[in-house]
């Protein structure tokens, strides 16, 4: 605040972003590239095994070794990105659009609508998320799209609750009152002030939920409710590797590490978005 302040170095905004954040974006970027053009990164087939090279240890030919059918693990992990990211995107889209709409309406309208919607959200939060998504899967049947949809449904409650809180916070802000005071109509004020100021936190949650969705999808895949074999899906890869736990550690290790890295990166990016909230 003081103007005598003697800046020694350039202010924060001009400096490079922290290394962790750069790394996080790099990981997400790489995995996205895997999902879009897996053929550019992996030369071997993810589905066709090479007989005679089953359960090979990681080597120059097979960076992450091969599985019980002689399929290249690296190729399977790279191709698996498509399945996981697509599923996570779908899940976040479902949660973000329905949840935000719900929260927005509840927060903006208030009263009975708000009370009813929030009781519904409470209810959804009272059911463990895994059981809720299993219920949706029973209804829709197994499969990767259905699993993604189920995971998305579960996150609706989280998005609804957060966006409602944010809308209420912004609505109470003096600048919103001032906007009404200068003759703003309800819609205009909502559009110009409430939405942009409430969205930052919601976006941060979306990034976080992207990571959680990948975790949840992997769990469903592991339990066998997601994509059917032989589709390369990260959760399924780990499940398949379980049979060779004693002999081939790389089968379970590699896909798990990839999942951890992607989820960590999503969390880091989410934090950087959240920090920008004013």
């Amino acid at each position: 605040m003081s103007e005598t302040a003697i800046p020694l170095r350039a202010p924060r905004s001009l400096r490079l972003p922290p290394a962790g954040l750069v790394l996080a974006w790099a990981v997400i970027g790489l995995v996205l590239a895997w999902a879009i053009a897996p053929g550019l990164f992996a030369w071997q087939s993810p589905l066709q095994g090479v007989s005679g090279s089953q359960l090979a240890e990681p080597s120059a030919a097979h960076w992450l070794g091969t599985d019980g059918l002689g399929r290249d693990m690296y190729a399977r992990v790279v191709y698996g990105a498509r399945e996981s990211l697509l599923g996570a995107c779908l899940a976040v889209t479902v949660g973000l659009s329905f949840g935000t709409l719900l929260g927005l309406v509840a927060g903006a309208r208030g009263g009975l609508v708000d009370a009813a919607m929030m009781r519904l959200v409470d209810t959804l939060l009272a059911i463990p998320s895994l059981l809720l998504s299993l219920s949706v899967i029973i209804l829709l049947g197994f499969g990767s799209i259905n699993a993604a949809f189920a995971v998305g449904c579960v996150s609706i409650a989280h998005f609804a609750r957060l966006s409602r809180t944010e809308v209420l916070r912004v609505r109470r802000a003096e600048y919103v009152e001032a906007a009404f005071g200068s003759g703003g109509r309800f819609g205009a004020v909502l559009w110009r002030h409430v939405l942009p100021n409430a969205m930052t936190s919601v976006l941060a949650l979306a990034a976080l939920q992207f990571g959680s969705a990948i975790l949840a999808l992997a769990t469903l895949g592991f339990l066998g409710y997601g994509a059917p074999p032989p589709t390369p899906e990260w959760g399924l890869l780990i499940a398949e590797g379980r049979d060779f736990l004693a002999s081939a550690w790389w089968l379970t290790c590699a896909p798990g590490v990839v999942v951890v890295l992607v989820v960590l990166s999503a969390e880091r990016i989410s934090r950087s978005i959240g920090a920008r909230r004013t």
């Binding site: 802000a173 003096e174 600048y175 009152e177 001032a178 005071g181 200068s182 942009p196 100021n197």
Partner: peptide, 14 residues
């Protein structure tokens, strides 16, 4: 027209 007390809260930061 009303002018608010806190000039830090009454202007939209965006």
């Amino acid at each position: 027209q009303l002018v608010f007390q806190n000039p830090f809260a009454s202007l939209d930061p965006r």
